[in-house]
Amino acid sequence: MVRRAEFWGGLFWLAFGVFVTWQGWLLELGSLREPGSGFVFFWLGLLISALAISIALNGVRGKGPLLGELWQGARWRNVLLVILALIAFGFLFEQLGFVICSLALLLFLMTFVDPVKPVLSIPISIVAAVGVWYVLEKVLLVQLPKGSWLEGLPLLG
């Protein structure tokens, strides 16, 4: 029981669900017709808790992999590369802007983490970065950083 990954995962999500439920309760629930600021958090926390209990019970019943088997075959180099790339993305986001940072991140991930041929990775990266920028900036009207070095160019504004 204690060695099953589902049991420990279920306990983690149960703790998270209880925390979200408690915070929702503290924010004031309101009523169904006039929900308060904690209404959605409260009910979402209860849903997370219920699902977590079912997962933990599967672990108690002996279903699922053992905790030691869960990490066998993990590619830790790739995990580290992704974490470092996301940290670099966060630090450079304001200076370089959304499009350049997203393009660089996607190219890095498709070149070093999970290699894809350049014939595919370059157009996919360009279309994804510019496409997401277009949807966020032009359709949803979300202001994204253009990059301090691109401030004067009308190209992205």
Score class of each variant (00 low, 15 high):
Met1Lys: 10
Glu6Ser: 13
Glu6Ala: 12
Trp8Val: 01
Trp8Lys: 01
Gly10Thr: 02
Ala15Asp: 10
Ala15Tyr: 05
Ala15Ser: 15
Gly17Pro: 10
Phe19Met: 14
Val20Gln: 00
Gly24Lys: 01
Leu26Phe: 00
Leu27Glu: 08
Arg33Thr: 12
Pro35Met: 11
Gly36Pro: 04
Gly36Leu: 04
Ser37His: 06
Gly38Ile: 03
Gly38Thr: 02
Phe42Gly: 06
Trp43Lys: 14
Leu46Gln: 15
Ile48Lys: 05
Ser49Trp: 00
Ser49Cys: 10
Leu51Asp: 03
Ala52Tyr: 02
Ile53Phe: 13
Ser54His: 08
Ile55His: 00
Ala56Ser: 13
Gly59His: 05
Val60Arg: 13
Arg61Gly: 11
Arg61Thr: 05
Lys63Met: 07
Gly64Asn: 06
Pro65Met: 10
Leu66Ile: 10
Leu66Trp: 08
Gly68Pro: 09
Trp71Phe: 13
Trp71Asp: 14
Gln72Ala: 14
Gln72Arg: 14
Gly73Thr: 11
Ala74Leu: 13
Val82Asp: 04
Val82Pro: 02
Leu84Gly: 15
Leu86Lys: 11
Ile87Glu: 04
Glu94Val: 07
Gln95Glu: 14
Leu96His: 01
Gly97Gln: 00
Phe98Asn: 02
Val99Gly: 06
Cys101Ala: 10
Leu103His: 07
Leu103Lys: 07
Ala104His: 04
Leu106Gly: 01
Leu109Ile: 10
Leu109Glu: 00
Met110Ala: 09
Thr111Asn: 12
Thr111Ile: 08
Phe112Asn: 10
Val113Leu: 06
Val116Gln: 05
Val119Thr: 11
Val119Gln: 11
Leu120Tyr: 15
Ser121Asp: 02
Ser125Gly: 15
Ser125Glu: 03
Ile126Phe: 12
Val127His: 08
Ala128Arg: 03
Ala129Tyr: 01
Leu136Glu: 02
Val139Glu: 09
Leu141Ser: 10
Gly147Val: 01
Trp149Asn: 03
Glu151Val: 11
Glu151Met: 09
Leu155Cys: 11
Leu156Phe: 05
Leu156Ile: 03
Leu156Arg: 02
Gly157Ser: 15
